[in-house]
């Protein structure tokens, strides 16, 4: 008791101002990084073979922008198919029905076990395997006839290949998310009278999102780049357009730089989107919102808000 009183009487002791330890290693490492960075930038600027003026001329070329549009379409549609399929396959995989979970397992095994490029070619050449595709009652009358030669354009083949392949990967991500949610959550939901479907949709999946979002962000970024593979079946996406242009004017390096700049720009935008998605689905999971350092830095940069300011009023008043 007396020591407490003493401190109170003496007031706050003076702030410690010690001589900091000299981190020689840090300075050396920093210097090396700086030298290497300067050398790289210098070579990029002075090496005339980079042909930066050509890069500038083609960066906003309408053909390039058309290709970029196709790349983005491929990414968005293929990811949408992949996520929807992934949720379906994950729920199937966790089904008590062995036939249903087995089917899901088989799908994942097949689509993860073969290269995407091979799958892209397969869908492109599907007409050789099935010239006519009939949709209808199995072993019964067909309701819709589709001529595979005309229906499966390179773009459709690309979408199908990328989307179906992505579904296999997404299902594993979704399954990991579902498993990460405590079983007590489902117990509580069912004890309140929710059905299995309601429990999955309202209770389990929203909480699984916290685990699902970060790898899904990676998958989307990866998809943006993987979509360049469909240039192999002549879909006029970013890489294909770039190749078509440099096949004529032989400005190979500058045009590849143009493509790289656009891929980098798009992935950067996705980074920001992923941050906000993570924050949305992380609500209620920690005691303070957006407490991670990268989050604070990013938010500070993006909205010029003072760091430490809570996004949710009342976030800090709990016990």
């Amino acid at each position: 008791m007396s020591s407490v009183k003493d401190t109170a009487e003496r007031g706050r002791p003076e702030e410690i101002r010690a001589v900091p330890v000299r981190h020689v290693g840090r300075w050396v490492a920093g210097a090396i990084v700086l030298v290497v960075a300067v050398a790289l930038v210098n070579s990029a600027v002075t090496n005339s073979r980079f042909q930066w003026s050509v890069v500038g001329n083609y960066l906003f070329d309408h053909r390039i922008l058309e290709g970029l549009k196709v790349t983005l379409e491929l990414t968005v549609v293929a990811m949408a198919i992949g996520i929807a399929l992934g949720v379906l396959l994950a729920v199937m995989r966790l089904s008590p029905n062995k036939l249903v979970s087995g089917a899901s397992w088989l799908y994942i095994w097949f689509f993860r076990g073969t290269p995407v490029l091979v799958q892209i070619f397969f869908w492109y050449f599907i007409a050789a395997l099935y010239p006519m595709i009939d949709l209808g009652i199995p072993f019964g009358p067909a309701l819709v006839h589709i001529n595979a030669n005309t229906a499966i354009t390179p773009f459709t083949a690309g979408i199908l290949a990328l989307g179906l392949n992505e579904g296999a990967y997404m299902s594993e991500i979704v399954r990991a998310g579902i498993i990460s949610v405590d079983e007590g959550q489902a117990d509580a939901a069912r004890s309140l009278g929710m059905t299995r479907l309601q429990t999955m949709r309202r209770i389990v999946l929203p909480q699984a999102m916290r685990v699902i979002i970060p790898p899904t962000g990676n998958e989307t970024i990866s998809m943006l780049k993987t979509s360049s593979l469909v240039s192999a079946i002549a879909v006029a996406e970013l890489l294909y357009v770039v190749q078509a242009i440099y096949a004529v004017n032989f400005k190979t390096i500058p045009l590849l730089i143009v493509a790289s700049i656009w891929y980098l720009a798009c992935t950067s935008v996705l980074y920001v989107g992923q941050y906000y998605l993570e924050r949305h689905y992380g609500r209620g999971s920690s005691r303070e919102q957006g407490a991670t350092l990268p989050g604070m830095v990013l938010r500070g940069v993006l909205s010029f808000r003072r760091p430490g300011e809570s996004a949710r009023p009342g976030g800090g008043e709990h016990r």
Binding site: D182, G184, Q198, Q207, S285
Partner: peptide
């Protein structure tokens, strides 16, 4: 089950909902 309330050792509150959300969830949904 909807007619039988259950309280668990580890609470099992729905982590993504506020206290109010936890209490209103089942009456609205079920």
């Amino acid at each position: 089950r909807a007619e039988i309330g259950m309280v668990f050792q580890h609470f099992n509150l729905f982590g993504h909902m506020t206290a109010l959300g936890n209490v209103t969830c089942a009456p609205i949904l079920v």
